[in-house]
Each structure stands twice: as C-alpha cells, then as structure tokens.
Design a protein around this nucleic acid. Sequence first.
DNA 1: TTATAAAATTGTAATCATTACAAACTTGAA
DNA 2: TTCAAGTTTGTAATGATTACAATTTTATAA
Lengths: 145, 145
Amino acid sequence: MEYTKEYLAEFGIKPSIQRIAVMKYLLNHKTHPNVDEIYMALHSTIPTLSKTTIYNTLSLFVESGAVSSINIDKRNIRYDADIKPHAHFRCKNCHIIIDLPVPNVCHEVFSISDIYKDLQIQDVEISLTGYCQHCQKDELSETEE
Amino acid sequence: MEYTKEYLAEFGIKPSIQRIAVMKYLLNHKTHPNVDEIYMALHSTIPTLSKTTIYNTLSLFVESGAVSSINIDKRNIRYDADIKPHAHFRCKNCHIIIDLPVPNVCHEVFSISDIYKDLQIQDVEISLTGYCQHCQKDELSETEE
DNA sequence: TTATAAAATTGTAATCATTACAAACTTGAA
DNA sequence: TTCAAGTTTGTAATGATTACAATTTTATAA
Ligand SMILES: [Mn+2]
Ligand SMILES: [Mn+2]
Ligand SMILES: [Zn+2]
Ligand SMILES: [Zn+2]
C-alpha cells in the first residue's frame, strides 16, 4: 500500500484508492491481465469501482511509463507492470502469455544501428506466437486459432 | 494476373476473381493496408465484392502463409505480402508504417537459443513505435497518441 | 470551517472492427 | 443435367474501447 503509493509517485502519478488498487494488482500479478480480469479481481473489494476507471487508470499508467501495454492478443490489450525490456510468447491453444528474455544485443540493434537513426523510437514490442510445451502439436493438424 | 494465380497456387490456394484481386493488390501495395483500404480500392472494379469476402480471403491467406498479419495498429489488423522476416515501425503522429530490416542474429535468437527450446514458435513480430523523421518532437511536448 | 475550482470517478451510450450465420451463387465432377 | 462442395454475399450479432456528461472527491484559499 505504502510501497505502491511511492511507486506511483516515482512516475508522477497522484495516488487514489482506485489507482493504488490497480497498480498493486499489476505488481502482484505478472500474468499480463486484461481490463476485464483486473475489474473482476477488484470490484469485490471496491464495489463502486467502474470499468471506465480501469480504462482511464491504465491509460494514465501507460502514458506515464509505469506500465507497458501488450498487443499480442488481438482480442484485448494486456498490461504488464514489468517495464524492463523483454519479449512475450503467446500460445495459440491455451492463450497463456509467457515472458521471454531477449539478449541485449538484440535490443541494442534498434538504438545503435545507423539504419534507424532517422526515427525517434520510443517503444519496442517483440511478440512470438505458437504452441507452449503443454500444447505442442505436429505440423499436420493445424486447426485452431 | 497469371503470376498472381501461380503465386496463390504455391501456397495451395485455389484462385477466384476475388482472391486474385486481393492478392494482386497486396503484392502491388506494400503499404500494409487494412481491410477497409483494400475494400475501397477494389470495389470499384468488382462492384459486387463484399467486405466479408475480404475478411475471409485475408484469413485464408494468413493461415496459408501467403500473407502476414500485423498487429502494430491497435485499431485494425494490417496485412503484408512481404513474408520475409522484418520489423515494423509505426509513427504515433502520421501513423505511417515503415519496414525495418533486422539483423539475422536477432531473428536466429528465437530459433537457436536454448531458452526457447520448450516452445513451438511459429511467428515472430517485432513492432517499434515513436516518431518518424517528419514528425519528430522534443521530449517535452508529448500530447497525442 | 466554508466556498469554490480542479481533478477524478462513475454510468450510460456510441463507435466500429471483426465474427457469425444463413442464403445465394459458382464450380466441377458424375 | 444433376448435385455436392466450395465460395461469396448481406445482414445481424459481438464485444472491446471510447465519448461524454453528471457526480463525487480532493485541494486550496477566504
Ligand atoms: Mn511481460
Ligand atoms: Mn512489412
Ligand atoms: Zn498452451
Ligand atoms: Zn510521422
């Protein structure tokens, strides 16, 4: 609670019951939840909580740099309190999203290479898709999304 | 026309007026168009063309591996006839999408590294966002999406 | 404390890309 | 020609996100 408050302050975000609750949830659940999951988890303890507030709050967090948004799932935007550079893998079967380390060399490419020097790069998102270790399938039977 | 037909055949896709038109458009317009742009461009020459057909056709192309879909734009899915590995940059101001080369070492990471050996990786998408050379801005005045 | 303005939250309605679905059409083999 | 499979079409449904105005909370100054 106090920690979360200070954490928000580091990004210049004024605390409120709702903001603290959302940030705390993200810090404790590194599962890349979407808006609905956050709402479901919180509205039992804060019954007046509105889904619009979740949207507003997450937009604020992302713009402030406290949280990163992940577009790997076409259905919903997902959110991640881990703002260190890393990649994501999404299983096409069970939809789990797994954090993947990426060697620094690979990230440095975008900041150091001459090729990109005309661009003001702010965010890098690396998304992999396929099947996780529990959902492996042979190349032949490709049916589901 | 004949070339496009043969191109589709390489991916096991049966040709039809509509499919040929969509594929031809993608081969000639490497601007990462969305469904609406494709529809607008084609329905003057094929007045009976339905938007649903564009959706169906593009899904078929993506599943067959003839085209890749790009999720860099939260609003719409974009499509790319260039299926060689490369990254994309999207300008937050003018929304242009630019192709970026990525050194092979960076792509090989995902296939060679031991870290990922439990995963059956099928697709890799690398998306950068920021401001293009025409839309550069100083860090202070951050307003727009 | 009280008054007042700014900031934050809330609920409802609108938007709009995508999907679902069933009917109509096309194709090609029997 | 017949028939079934494959393809296209139009309309309706879905559902995440955004817009917006009203309400509530917070901060500040009189
Ligand atoms: Mn993550
Ligand atoms: Mn491209
Ligand atoms: Zn899985
Ligand atoms: Zn630009």
